[in-house]
C-alpha cells in the first residue's frame, strides 16, 4: 500500500476581474498516493489548469492548504520555497511556447541543474543533460539544436527531460499531449508511463481528452466551473458515472467503433464563466436531470461507493 504523497484541502483560487470575483478553483480537495496518477478532466473554464498551477505555487492560493509529504507547502517562502520546487515539477501543454526559442536543447534541459547547483562542473552538467536526453528518448545529435528545428513530439520530450532534471517526486502534466499528432501522443504517453514505473513518480495529469486519461490514470477527477463534481477510480468512473455532467461528458466522446450504438446526451447551452455565481448548483442551467433540491446552494462531495465521490443533490 503506497503512502499518500499529496493532500489538497479546500484549495481555492479566485481572481478579481472587472465583472466580479472569478472562482477559478473553488474548494477542491483530494489525496494522491505515491507512484499513482490522478487525472483531472474538464472543459474550458473548469479550472483544471489553474488547479495545477496553484498546487505548484505558480499562482498563490486564495484559500486552502496543500500538504506535500505532510508539510503545508502553501506557507513556504524564500529559500525554502525555491528548495521545495525540486519535488514537484511541471510539464507544459504547448511544445512551442514552453521552450525558450533562444536556447539550445542542452541549455534548456540544463537550466534547472544550474539554478540549483546540482552539478560539480561543466562536464558533469553535460553528463547529466545527456543522461536525461537518453531517458526521454532524445538522440544526442539534437544536443545543440534549437527548439524550432524540431517537431512537437521531440519538443515535448525536451520539456519532460527538463522537468526530470531536478529528480522530482511528482509531475504535474498540463495537457502534455493535446498539441501533438495522434501517433506521437501515444509515444509520449508511453514514455510518461515508463518513467512512472521506473521512478515511482506521482502524476497529476490534466487534460480535456477523456479517452487519453482513461488509459493513463488510476483515479479521475471531473471538474466543472472550479469545483470537483466527481472523483473515482478510472474504470469505475467510466462504467458507473453518477454526476449528470460526467455522464454527458462521457457520452459526448466520439468513439472510433461503428459497431456500438450509443445514446448521446447533448447538453443545452454554453459553458459559462465562473464569475459571480448564484448560490445554487453551478451545473443546474445545463443539467438534464434537475430536481427540486438543486436550488439549495452548492452540493458537497459525498462518497457514494468505495472511493467514488460525487457532488450532486440527486445523490445527497
Amino acid at each position: 500500500m503506497s503512502e499518500t504523497i499529496l493532500e489538497v484541502r479546500n484549495l481555492s483560487k479566485f481572481f478579481s476581474t472587472k465583472k466580479g470575483l472569478l472562482h477559478a478553483v473553488d474548494g477542491v480537495s483530494f489525496d494522491l498516493k505515491a507512484g499513482k496518477t490522478l487525472g483531472v478532466v474538464g472543459e474550458s473554464g473548469c479550472g483544471k489548469s489553474t488547479l495545477g498551477r496553484t498546487i505548484i505555487r505558480l499562482l498563490e492560493p486564495t484559500a486552502g492548504e496543500v500538504y506535500f509529504e505532510g508539510q503545508d507547502i502553501t506557507k513556504l517562502k524564500g529559500k525554502t520555497l525555491i528548495n521545495f520546487r525540486k519535488n514537484i515539477q511541471m510539464v507544459f501543454q504547448d511544445p512551442f511556447s514552453s521552450l525558450d526559442p533562444r536556447r539550445t536543447v542542452a541549455q534548456i534541459i540544463a537550466e534547472p541543474i544550474h539554478l540549483h547547483k546540482l552539478a560539480k562542473d561543466k562536464a558533469d552538467v553535460e553528463r547529466q543533460t545527456l543522461a536525461l536526453m537518453d531517458t526521454v528518448g532524445l538522440a544526442h545529435r539534437w544536443h545543440n539544436t534549437y527548439p524550432h528545428q524540431l517537431d512537437g513530439g521531440r519538443r515535448q520530450r525536451i520539456g519532460i527531460a527538463r522537468a526530470l532534471a531536478l529528480q522530482p517526486k511528482m509531475l504535474i502534466c498540463d495537457e502534455p499531449v493535446s498539441a501533438l499528432d495522434v501517433s506521437i501522443q501515444a509515444q509520449i504517453l508511453n514514455l510518461l508511463k515508463e518513467l512512472q514505473e521506473e521512478r515511482n513518480i506521482s502524476y497529476i495529469f490534466i487534460t480535456h481528452d477523456l479517452s487519453v486519461i482513461y488509459n493513463f490514470a488510476d483515479d479521475i477527477a471531473v471538474m466543472y466551473l472550479g469545483r470537483m463534481v466527481e472523483k473515482a477510480h478510472a474504470e469505475e468512473l467510466f462504467r458507473n458515472p453518477v454526476h449528470p455532467y460526467t455522464k454527458a461528458l462521457l457520452s459526448a466522446i466520439p468513439v472510433p467503433d461503428i459497431n456500438r450504438k450509443r445514446k448521446r446526451i447533448i447538453l443545452e447551452g454554453e459553458v459559462v464563466s465562473p464569475v459571480n455565481l448564484p448560490d445554487e448548483c453551478r451545473f443546474k442551467k445545463r443539467c438534464n436531470m434537475k430536481c427540486d433540491k438543486c436550488d439549495n446552494g452548492e452540493p458537497t462531495l459525498k462518497e457514494v461507493a468505495p472511493n467514488h465521490f460525487v457532488s450532486c443533490w440527486l445523490n445527497d
Binding site: V182, A186, N190, S211
Partner: peptide
C-alpha cells in the same frame, strides 16, 4: 492509426504508437 488511439472501450495500459515519423 486505430492501434495508437486511446480507447475508452478497452482499457489497455500501453498504447501502440506507429514507430518513426
Amino acid at each position: 492509426l486505430f492501434n495508437s488511439l486511446p480507447n475508452i472501450i478497452e482499457r489497455r495500459s500501453k498504447l501502440t504508437p506507429i514507430p518513426g515519423m
